[in-house]
Design a protein around this nucleic acid. Structure first.
Length: 601
RNA sequence: GCGCCCGUAGCUCAGUGGAUAGAGCAACUGACUUCGGAUCAGUAGGUCGGGGGUUCGAAUCCCUCCGGGCGCGCCA
């Protein structure tokens, strides 16, 4: 089925990638001051770095000793509001190499920061900071200036589409392979977590400036396909499914839908002694594969490339990879089989590439696939695997290294298992027996948005119990609706305002001096750094936490500040601008997770 | 036996070197003649599995023990 091997670059130009490419231009043409181009936390870090350099230049701090490592400047988000909007522990890190008290160093740095802030107050805005305060045991607590907040929010208003997208210093072309379930039956709930985790990771990487290809890999020629064909053929000819065949209801559906030409081909194969199970299986597995693709699209997961194991052999990737390993001296023959010397790279045993009966192992395909992927120009390969595959991580990375690739560019993300529970009992999952709940059935019960939020808010390393009845019951209590409600509430306010003849201003102007406004502004400007952190950690819990926090802050603002007020149209229009920026931020955060942002609920 | 992952509030989970460990749900007490009550304000709930160590500072790093999951194939 060559049509499924569409690994060409034509599918990589996703809307997201296009938006990324357009982002710098749009930002440059906006009227916002230049400081709004960078995340506000980045601006703060650069201010601290400047203060440190100035202190050294002025002799108030010594240069770092030659033998000391240069510490990185980390900007943190204090837990307590009285500790400021941001803080840094740089002075405590410098205490040891400088052999001076951390608080003393902190005072010097805070002094430099305060001086720059005072100069900025009278001249062009170069620092996002209003104040810097040194406190025991050596923290420097920073407070953002209204001007910096205003510049950032006005930039959201002028270019909402790119808000939350950032650009890492070295963007990469990344291949993310996930799901990759063999097409012998519909996707079931056991495949759910990998599908969501993979897609969420892709979205976060794209938002950080990387170019991502979503890839699905499957076996199109093995015994499983033949087995599926035999099962379908049995039912199509009125016989029972073989005991070790596939028994799900979908097999009967396939048998009913068997086209006349496939049936004829199978009968002809029977007569000539050819492989009828293969003839039927090839049709059935492609039929199943198309159903899988449709299910995934329904989840909001679109794959750019579908790659088959058979194509790796037909196109010679497997043989070329093995020859490359052999040329490098990492392959040997023993007991009639061909082995990869994985132990040379720290594995606990060597691995068979080609069995003594002449067949290649699955591992051989893995090796060829690494070569094939790198040949397409990817800088980085990510595999999303179930945690039960952790035993195969080392051998694949070792083989990549043995073929001359940097093993750091081959990354496996191991997703922990989900135990699905119904009526207090774990649901056993088996495609063979047909006892399983399909992904489509699960989504019909709990909804795509709720399911996406569920998986986005949990670390993929943690095993999870998913009680289906509980999930259905709790669906109305799901935090995702809390965030969506905040978005819909703002939409409602904007509609009401339009009816009253009030439209959002182009700028929030001077209203950030107000306490409710200041709190909301400080919450929403964080989105770019949340995206940076999510991409760096390859995790999305930070995004759900941020969205929940912003929704809470919005509800508090709604309580404390009247937005629509005909008596004070200027302040009202500025507040409308602020809630509009909040709406954009909520929508972009939800969009990052593939979750809808409804105008009404 | 060896290897990897996990153990945090009644439940489901965040937090992986910083300040008094957080959220949602569940429980309890309150709030609407006004922009959406799918909301808000508050109360209660913790030996961060146990022990030892490193550090100015540990839920976070190291060692060890206990408990749970998953691997250890010329299967895919």
């Amino acid at each position: 089925m060559p049509s499924t091997d569409s690994t060409g670059p034509s599918h990589t130009a996703t809307p997201t990638a296009a938006a990324l490419a357009a982002a710098p231009t749009a930002a440059a043409s906006s009227s916002a001051p230049p400081t709004a181009d960078r995340p506000i936390r980045t601006q703060a870090r650069q201010a601290v770095e400047r203060a440190w350099a100035c202190a050294i230049a002025e002799g108030r701090l010594p240069p770092l000793p030659e033998d000391a490592d240069t510490p990185t400047v980390d900007i943190e988000r204090p837990a307590k509001p009285e500790h400021g909007d941001l803080s840094t522990n740089l002075a405590m890190k410098l205490a040891r190499p400088y052999r001076r008290a951390p608080l003393e160093i902190a005072r010097v740095l805070a002094d430099e920061l305060a001086r720059e802030a005072a100069e900025a107050f009278n001249g062009p805005l170069t620092t996002p900071l209003a104040t810097a305060e040194a406190v025991a045991p050596g923290f420097i607590n920073l407070r953002l200036s209204d001007g910096a907040l205003r510049a950032t929010i006005d930039r959201i208003l002028s270019d909402p589409g790119s808000w939350g997208r950032v650009s890492v210093p070295h963007p990469q072309r990344i291949n993310v392979e996930f799901v990759s379930a063999n097409p012998t039956g519909p996707l079931h709930i056991g495949n759910a977590r990998g599908a969501f985790v993979g897609d969420l990771l892709c979205r976060v990487l794209e938002a950080a400036g990387h170019t991502v290809t979503r890839e699905y890999y499957f076996n199109d020629f093995g015994a499983q396909v033949r087995n599926l064909g035999a099962s379908v053929w049995a039912l199509a000819t009125g016989k029972p499914v073989p005991e070790d065949g596939y028994h799900g209801a979908y097999v009967a559906d396939l048998a009913r839908e068997l086209p006349a030409e496939v049936r004829a081909a199978a009968e002809a194969a029977t007569a000539t002694g050819e492989d009828l199970a293969w003839a039927v299986g090839a049709w059935a597995s492609e039929r199943v594969r198309a159903g899988i693709e449709a299910s995934l699209e329904h989840l909001g997961v679109h794959f750019d490339a579908w790659k088959t194991e058979g194509s790796l052999h037909r196109e010679g990737w497997v043989e070329r990879a093995i020859e490359k390993l052999r040329a490098a001296g990492h392959v040997y023959e023993e007991d009639g089989a061909t082995w990869f010397r994985s132990t040379a790279f720290g594995d606990d045993k060597d691995r068979v590439i080609r069995k003594s009966n002449g067949d290649y192992t699955y591992f051989a395909s893995d090796i060829g696939y690494v070569e094939e992927k790198f040949s397409r120009g990817f800088d980085h390969l990510i595999y999303i695997w179930g945690a039960d595959h952790h035993g195969t991580v080392a051998r694949v990375r070792n083989a990549a290294q043995a073929m001359g690739h940097d093993p750091a560019r081959v990354e496996m993300i191991l997703v922990a298992w989900v135990r699905f529970i119904r009526d207090g009992r774990e649901i056993s999952m088996s495609k063979r027996s047909g006892e399983f709940i399909t992904l489509d059935e699960l989504l019909a019960e709990v909804g795509v948005d709720a399911a996406r939020w569920f998986f986005a808010s949990r670390a993929y390393t943690s095993g999870i119990d998913f009680d289906i009845e509980l999930a259905k019951k709790q669906s109305n209590e799901n935090p995702v609706y809390y965030v969506q409600y905040a978005h819909a509430r703002i939409a409602s306010i904007l509609r009401k305002a339009a009816e009253a003849g009030l439209s959002p201003a182009d700028s929030v102007g001077g209203i950030l001096a107000g306490a409710p406004e200041a709190a909301l502004a400080r919450a929403l400007v964080r989105l770019p750094e949340v995206v940076e952190d999510a991409a760096a950690a390859e995790e999305t819990q930070g995004v759900t936490a941020f969205a929940t926090d912003l929704a809470t802050t919005l509800h508090a603002f709604y309580r404390d500040a009247r937005v629509i007020d005909r008596a004070e149209p200027e302040r009202s229009r500025a507040r409308l601008a602020l809630v509009l920026a909040t709406k954009t931020t909520l929508a972009n955060a939800l969009g990052l997770l593939g979750i809808s942002a409804p105008e009404s609920m």
